[in-house]
Design a protein around this nucleic acid. Sequence first.
DNA 1: TTCAGGAATATTTTT
DNA 2: TATTCCTGAA
Length: 721
Amino acid sequence: MALDLSTLNLEQLEAVLHKDGPLLVFAGAGSGKTRVITYRIANLIHQHGISPRHILAVTFTNKAAAEMKERLQHLLGMSMRGLWVGTFHSICARILRESGRAIGIPPNFLVYDEGDQLDLIRQVLVDLNLDEKQFNPRAISNAISRAKERLITPEGYREQAYDFFERIVASVYPRYQSALQSANALDFDDLLCKTIELFEQHPLVLARYQDQFRYILVDEYQDVNYAQYVLVRLLAEAHRNLCVVGDDDQAIYSFRGAEVELILRFEQDFPDAMVVKLERNYRSTQPILDLAFKLVSQNTLRTPKRLWTDRTEGKPVTLTPVADEEEEARLIAEYIQREVARGNRRYGDFAILYRTNAQSRVFEQRFMRERIAYRIIGGVRFFDRKEIKDLIAYLRLLVNPDDTVSLLRIINVPPRRIGDQTVKTIQAYASEKGISLYRALTEPGLHARLPLQAQQAIGGFTALIENLRAYAPKASLTDTTRRVLEKSGYLTWLEQRKDAESVDRAGNLREFVNVVAKYEQTLPESEEATESPLLGFLQYLALISDLDTLDESGDHVMMMTLHSAKGLEFPVVFLVGVEQGLLPHALSETPRDIEEERRLCYVGMTRAQDELHLTYARERSYYGSRRACIPSPFLKAFKDTPMPTLYQQMYGTPPAPTPYRAPIWTPARTQSRFLPGQRVHHPDFGYGIVVRTSDALVTVMFPGGKGMHSFPLQECPLEEA
DNA sequence: TTCAGGAATATTTTT
DNA sequence: TATTCCTGAA
């Protein structure tokens, strides 16, 4: 069977057929980039007989990785076993698990996420007697992250630390590193740094991986940071079969250390590189592309290129001023309902893109009210919820009792009478003896310093952990998780406090058990035979994101940030909140930052296949207070282009005045009987106003100093007034 | 030590 | 607005 290449255009074909040597592909939005990468790999395997195990493909998300593997399997009709596809982080995690021992990293290391990082930095600040108020842990964490992205060691940082803040960071950084080490944990950046360290210190290990990865492909190369760049260079320098794909117009991650210059520099690094530009767009209509080009061509730092398409006909892009975010949501909901009712579209055809996660709330409320199916990507991730993180902390302790962050997280959750005082004593004892907190818990020397009550509480806690630890290796993942919930008393604790929030949380924990069960069921497909399933699961958890669990199959309106939308496409896109201060965001000040915000806007616009609608509000609520808004300066790029408003498109001329719609909240149409703003009556508190509702609870504000109260939906003593 | 409730405060984007 | 912080009572 021959690989069918007839559907590829000339440039795509060039990229696909290029076999050896460096290759740089500038792939504009919607230019069939994924196809090129997939076909290129398929061609290497099929045409040139390269074994999948000699190929490494780096993608931006785990989801993209899974999809690519699946497509290849489908295309070639053979198993892609041995092919490495994944994000930089997951690939590095895998390398370190295999070979990290050489630089003292045991294979059972855990990956700390941002929250864990912050917790650890706070601990270090306490150790150093630094006030958290004065030295923002987040800023310090960012500074350390920045340093690591540029492969700057604690020593290196100290040498170049000038101002006061940098000197503080210089003192925290080494301590933070040793705290990570004693917790047997790596943060996100360490995954990269340590892999590079491994390769630099052990040329033989590097040579082994170089020999394995004879062909390397890197997607989204415009969003690569220095450490990633170095890693790629190290791996590729032996065979020089490196193909990088990217688009400088879509570089939107400089806040994470990404440097667009690295893609622009590729031709200097590899003067013999073949360069292919993909400028034919298969996604959008000409009006959309024209407008997007008007915007992005204002940037100074870009390679010249312009997308073109066959789809010369298309609806005009609309630009609609709205009074505020409420009208914005109302208008869009109305348009969606209308299109769906007419049979033109399904909910899944629409996407709402915004700059900040907070903007999703108004849409969420509106859509709930109007019963429009929607999915929000990002925001508070399921795995970031307190109760879920607590449960994960228990699981982590079972794998690695030295994980201090996790230990401190749950040592008194649920409350088991191990309070602040006791914890301080434990910490003092542990650092005195140079042992981990968990080790300290088991030492008689510690107990001698504590009151009997605390001793007993600690004894109970260690017995619990030991019991669970003994159980885990013998049981399935799901059973272990259930047992943790049960034996720790966490679930009982939540269930006892009847308040509605706890009911929500208990529900989330049960949902988590389902996630575990699902993972366990699909486990056999994964090729890594992990010696400890629990460890494998935790490592999997650490690196997945919300986007990875997104399924586009359902019929929902998608709502997400512009960043999350990268790489996706939708028939109809609403780009909302195109206002000064929001897009570009107020925190982006330098010309460089502004250019990135412009690219962000460009990314959003180029997600649209058939229709693109822009909106900006004249007034908007910012953390409680209302503020007047100015349209985004980006819109000036469109001043010569007549753009109708969405109202005009819906009703024809003239522009309809803002139609006032009475909110529809008949009880029969709503899931929870209550809606924000509604007046209700309570037997004890009297009349109040519903502030908020969720799946399980309703929160009501009662006037006259009676305050806010939450009730479980099922059995709340409220009546509609 | 725990918990409730009011006060203070912080808000960009994410592997 | 929503979350965290802080205080004081049990």
